[in-house]
Design a protein around this nucleic acid. Structure first.
Lengths: 145, 145
DNA sequence: AAAGTTGTAATAATTTATATTTCAACTTTC
DNA sequence: GAAAGTTGAAATATAAATTATTACAACTTT
């Protein structure tokens, strides 16, 4: 199991939006071409990013723009926006433990806090990186090519 | 997307093995009953735990036993044993970024280290808990019931 | 020998992720 | 104001991953 590629796709298209904005109209078709991901999926992701206040898009006119500065968008914001992880959490608990077994009826409770801690450690790490850093690194590599 | 339930199942059955060992023969059928997970899946998980040197099982005789002390088995050991995450890592990268696009051909490289850090933060957290703690908490709750 | 168990392979069913098709609503440009 | 291109969204299809099931040989103990 892995965290859905919508997350890395979202980071990818946000980098494109920042880097190409001004040079061209960054449409879902352009982004589909850069990512290799279907344009409808791109529009879905853009929709989630829009709902989270990260990008701006409008029907008809075409072309996405960032809604706030690069350094105010963390990887965590993106991860949340595209709904990588649902309310159940990162770890999938088996669903039918036996309530007649003393272990079965308590294991969930015992594990819950610890699994949440682990998930939080991951998420805190994602909070520590902003798109500004990602884009800066990308531009640097491009310049050196 | 979530981390496969084989992980929580594995923790569950290890707790059962420790708590019930001596009282009964802890077979895959018993464990299937406690977890609500198919007995063949349980045997697969036990097989992975055996390969990792965490439990001992034998054909014919039946009944699993821990292969080393509870405090020498971390949640990370279990997570590794059941192969929660493959070599690609926790985050799933979209597979066909466009090499003709400057962002497309570099984004993977730029993100890689950061995603690995996040995964490591998760894993370090799992390393910090041993089965001894999980079982102690479980026994405590059982005693208070 | 009988009964019960593990280990493993093969297959099926279920769930989740991703892609595709379609089209109405909208904007800009001619 | 018509044409061309775009977004947003729904419906459906395909693909991939997870979990369950069936089947049985190999093994142990009684």
């Amino acid at each position: 199991m892995q965290i859905t590629s919508k997350f890395t796709v979202a980071v990818h298209i946000l980098a494109c939006i920042d880097i190409f904005d001004g040079q061209m109209r960054v449409t879902s078709d352009i982004l589909s071409g850069s990512t290799g991901v279907n344009a409808v999926i791109i529009r879905n992701v853009l929709g989630q990013l829009r709902n989270a206040g990260i990008v701006e898009t409008r029907q008809g006119s075409g072309g996405a723009h960032l809604a706030r500065p690069l350094n105010e968008i963390t990887l965590y914001d993106i991860y949340r926006a595209v709904d990588c992880i649902d309310d159940e959490g990162l770890f999938h608990f088996h669903e039918n433990p036996n309530a007649d077994c003393p272990v079965g009826r308590n294991i969930h409770k015992v594990m819950d806090g610890r699994l949440r801690e682990a998930q939080m450690a991951l998420e805190n790490e994602l909070k520590s990186t902003t798109l500004a850093e990602v884009v800066a690194d990308t531009r640097k590599i491009i310049d050196e090519e």
